[in-house]
Amino acid sequence: MRRSGDITARLLWAAGLLVLGVVSVYVALPVAIAFVMSFSGGQILRFPIQSWSLRWYADFFGSPQYVDALVNTLVIALGATVLSVAAGTASAWAISRRKNLATGALTLLHMLPLFVPGVVLGLGIAITFGNVRLFGMDLYGTRFIVMLAHSLWGMPLVMMLMETTFRSLDRQVLEASRDLGAGPFTTFREIVLPEVRTAILSSALFSFVVSVNEFYMALFLTTRDTQTLPVLMWLSLRSAGSPRLAVAAVVLMTIVLVSLVLLASGLRRKERVRG
């Protein structure tokens, strides 16, 4: 009885580890392979790789089209992050201060855009703002409209994360600050902000990464001049599959990784100061 249970348990565990191993390879493969291919010296995508070089990196950064797309991606992502963090944090603070039916409905309202597919939002914004002019400029095709579009996903993410964080703050600590003579703004700056710094940085990173990688909305909303790197990659995918795309993929991943590392080191420095 006991032995057979032991054997089943071991078999199950082995099967589980096998699944884990296969999934690990599956998950790492496309990422790793794009990385390797970016250092290929060949013209075409085939295995085994014959020669190694950095020529495709030189090619990528020498191409105005790709560099422009990279700049567009970064500018749009930064703008969307600022919008998302500002709007999402403010909402989260307001909502977390109260608890009633209305705030439940408000939270749900904030979440709605997350349930709408990017292609639908992209199409809708293109249709609705296609001929809207703001300050004498066409809104459509600008980086600003893409920032707004990406904030529709960034803002709810920030809101969710920050609302949980704000609710987890000790109410008595905030009251103690008021009690000792600090007004609401001083209390927010002196007591709340330092406590939620990590959460704000993480949610900023979140909305930044979402915007850097997003391409359904960007596809519908950008022109040749404002297209982002994922859009440019998508458009060149069928026409010219070259190692240059591998470099583009590596550049996108590097942006994400660098922002992750910046976040982690920023947090670590803070920890050291405190410890």
Partner: peptide, 11 residues
């Protein structure tokens, strides 16, 4: 006020 939890500012 001296609060039940102390409510010291943790940072």
């Amino acid at each position: 006020t001296i609060f039940q939890s102390g409510a010291l500012f943790p940072h």
